[in-house]
């Protein structure tokens, strides 16, 4: 990839996803885009970028942007905090008000965070039809993989207790696959957090622990603002370590926030 190629990809990432991509990091760009190029039938990342530029190919442009976005987390990342957030759903303010409980795992990457929530709810015997689990990511490709619920031997050993592995997974020739009844409890959608999430409704708990440090400041504010605006009045937003937003106050536990008042997304 030449400097012009890298500038084009960095610009695409900034405009479409708010990602901060340093065009000087040639190795990183090559490393992420070479597999996309191979998959799409191009000889090199340079040829892929040339096709995006010359043909103004929207699908290819998104494929490049999605390849540059951060990947998901391990199973049960910061397990104590996740546990506490789920507990709060059923005993905290607004619990038991007869309304369906809505949970959104945003930027769920490979699906580990979303499935961790499903396992926790199932183990507490509260994963009823009145509980909605909504899992989203920017990457169509990662969403497809996540929906399959198939993980390698390495992946299931990162954060997932052996007792949960034997309880919730089945053997598969390529690793381990989450049991179908848990996979069916999730609703999946491709969502760009730069877009207003109003059409998806309001949520009791939103979990989004992607590292926002890789995004442009304005995009980061806009995305967290969008998440905060999608909370119900008693809703809680769970962010990664060190993330804050001016319209949010800590809700009793590190990393768990509630709106200070009605929060609107940054323009």
């Amino acid at each position: 990839m030449n400097p012009r190629d890298r500038e084009l990809v960095a610009d695409l990432c900034a405009r479409r996803a708010g990602l901060r991509v340093d065009p000087e990091k040639a190795y990183l760009l090559e490393n992420r885009l070479a597999p996309v190029a191979r998959r799409e039938g191009y000889q090199s990342a340079h040829d892929l970028v040339a096709a995006i530029r010359d043909r103004d190919d929207d699908r290819l442009a998104w494929a490049a942007v999605e390849a540059m976005t951060p990947c998901g987390t391990d199973f049960f990342h910061d397990a104590a905090a996740l546990d506490a957030a789920v507990d709060d759903l059923f005993v905290g303010p607004g619990a038991g008000d007869g309304q369906p409980v809505r949970i959104w795992a945003a930027s769920c990457g490979g699906g580990q965070e979303a499935y961790s929530l499903a396992m926790l709810l199932h183990e507490r015997a509260v994963l009823t039809p009145d509980v909605e689990l909504f899992a989203t990511d920017l990457s169509e490709r990662r969403l497809e993989a996540a929906q399959a619920g198939l993980y390698s031997q390495f992946e299931v050993q990162r954060g997932l207790a052996a007792r949960r592995l034997v309880r919730h997974f089945e053997a598969h020739e390529a690793g381990f696959v989450l049991s179908p009844h848990l996979r069916r409890t999730l609703r999946w959608a491709r969502v760009n957090l730069l877009d207003d999430p109003e059409r998806h409704g309001k949520f009791d708990l939103i979990v989004c622990r992607q590292p926002f440090g890789g995004y442009l400041d304005a995009a980061r504010e806009r995305m967290i603002g969008h998440l905060a605006s999608a909370l119900k009045p008693h809703g809680r937003l769970m962010l990664g370590a060190g993330e804050t937003y001016p319209g949010l106050v800590e809700a009793g536990r590190p990393g768990l926030y509630r709106p200070a008042s009605r929060v609107r997304a940054a323009a």
Partner: peptide, 20 residues
């Protein structure tokens, strides 16, 4: 051993965790 039945056997036998 990465068979789920073997992992279950280890846990039932008193193991606290299992690494493959």
């Amino acid at each position: 051993e990465n068979d789920l039945a073997r992992i279950r056997e280890a846990l039932d036998g008193g193991a606290d965790e299992y690494i493959m």
